[in-house]
Design a protein around this nucleic acid. Structure first.
Lengths: 120, 120
DNA sequence: CCGGATCCGTGTTGATACTG
DNA sequence: CAGTATCAACACGGATCCGG
């Protein structure tokens, strides 16, 4: 079961998945677009305050290349570009949800184990 | 709902989760330890053939710091060190599973859309 | 004005030895 | 076998500039 994609060889579909969603901000971007869609670049920036614009654009381009999201450019002034998940991208919802749920568990775990040391 | 952890502030538990499992090889390592546990370093290296040893050790140390895995050192010669997921780490199983499932979906998607171009 | 591209400094990752 | 050292390559971030 070998998968060739983008000049690389993957031996499990897990590795293929990680190559697509493993980017530094990919999951966060997908989370945004699951909350609301479509979104403009500036709107995603508001959601993800601590991501700089250059990285955001790069990660969006990669997601677009992998056909996870669709980028729609409106030829207007000032420029308007909208991003939204396509079909295969929407199927990432369970991944994002399970991460959010685990995050809740981990937060509770921290609260229990770090006797009220800085979690509130 | 602000979470302070490791001198950083997180505003959602999703961001907290990503800070822990978002490392370059974290998910792959956790996948290994879900397949079989405990595992020695050399065994993890066999599973993750394309990860270099330095990074593997560093990622394992980070997971240990975050209390996701436990590192057991046996004082023998030659050295023997075993890694295994602890309770909160085992709860990551749904995350890994959903990623694997999506990977399967994505692979099928590629097969359909790239008319037998390099997927088999 | 908004999306995005370029320049450049910095931290992270990788390849290949090497040690106990 | 587990882990470290060194150096090169790359990803990332901040600031700035561009084009419509």
């Amino acid at each position: 079961m070998e998968i060739f994609y983008k000049e690389k060889t993957f031996f499990t579909s897990k590795d293929l998945a990680l190559s697509v969603i493993g980017g530094r901000w990919k999951i966060a971007i997908i989370w945004c677009l699951l909350q609301q869609s479509p979104l403009r670049l500036s709107e995603i920036q508001k959601y993800l305050a601590d991501v700089n614009q250059r990285m955001l654009i790069r990660q969006l381009r990669e997601l677009e290349e992998d056909q996870i999201i669709t980028r729609v450019v409106y030829p207007v002034v000032p420029p308007k570009v909208e991003y939204q998940l396509n079909e295969i991208g929407l199927l990432l919802e369970p991944v994002v949800t399970s991460i959010c749920n685990w995050g809740d568990n981990f937060r509770e775990f921290l609260e229990e184990n770090t006797d009220k040391q800085s979690v509130e």
